[in-house]
């Protein structure tokens, strides 16, 4: 059982996950940010590795990816940075990024290396379900890595059931069909969507992401799911020169 599965076993509500891009704002900020987030009370982390063409991301994360690449971030550099991670950070860690850098690194090598540095799961939005199942799931399973699938309001029930079957830690529920950094849709349609999924009684917990930026929509998301993910709103905070010292107040503002 990896740290992620363990977390969901022990805590089932109001889980807060924070996304940030590795190598942003500075190449070496990755581990310091992770440590500060753990100390401030984040329940788990998503560390993004940058890609030149991030089609699922809005301007904030596009920008952080661009800067991270300019700073020299690569998967090799990231794994080097994370090699002593588990000495100081104990909460579950996911890596999030696009499929091409992983394919170039080698999917099997990527999974081995991720497990070696203590990563618990991976989110790859553009890795299709068929290719995951047929070609790559064995590497994930051998290395005790959870692969996280996304679900949108347009995902059909059959497909959600299939995703539930292939998942072993949580399902990433998108608040709407959108790129990252939008605002939470609280129209009546979205309530129906959450209720519909809740009524499916899936075996995996659910975490809501995309458009979660403050306490109000974090609390709203937690009414329907086991927790929520804050990404762009946190990445914006990192623009501040004194970002490390501002992290505790940011987490407190969402989770108090």
């Amino acid at each position: 059982m990896n740290r992620l599965q363990n977390l969901f076993k022990n805590k089932t509500n109001s889980l807060l996950s924070i996304y940030f891009t590795a190598g942003y704002p500075e190449l070496d900020s990755t581990v310091a940010i992770a440590e500060a987030l753990e100390k401030s009370g984040a329940d788990f982390l998503e560390i993004g590795f940058p890609y030149s063409d991030p089609v699922a991301d809005g301007p904030t994360i596009q920008h952080s990816s661009e800067i991270a690449l300019e700073n020299g971030m690569t998967l090799h550099v990231l794994f080097e940075q994370l090699k002593d991670l588990r000495k100081t950070v104990s909460i579950p860690i996911l890596l999030m990024g696009y499929v091409n850098p992983i394919v170039q690194y080698g999917v099997e090598n990527f999974c081995k290396k991720a497990a070696e540095v203590g990563v618990d799961g991976v989110i790859v939005p553009d890795l299709p379900m068929y290719e995951y199942e047929a070609l790559y799931s064995k590497y994930f399973i051998d290395n005790d890595l959870s692969n996280i699938f996304l679900v949108t309001p347009q995902t059909t029930e059959d497909r959600i059931r299939k995703i539930d079957e292939l998942s072993n830690s949580f399902i990433y529920l998108l608040s709407s069909s959108s790129i990252t950094g939008g605002s939470l849709d609280v129209s009546s349609g979205i309530e129906d969507y959450y209720k519909r999924i809740k009524a499916m009684q899936l075996k995996n917990p659910m975490i809501i992401g995309f458009g979660i930026s403050n306490k109000t929509n974090f609390d709203k998301a937690c009414e329907y799911a086991n927790g929520a993910i804050v990404g762009s709103a946190f990445v914006k905070l990192l623009k501040d020169e004194d970002y490390l010292n501002k992290i505790p107040a940011f987490i407190k503002s969402i989770k108090s």
């Binding site: 299709p128 068929y130 996304l150 949108t152 347009q154 059909t156």
Partner: peptide
């Protein structure tokens, strides 16, 4: 080939 797309584009 294939269809390497995020879930948002799948439908």
């Amino acid at each position: 080939g294939g269809a390497y797309i995020p879930e948002m584009l799948y439908p």
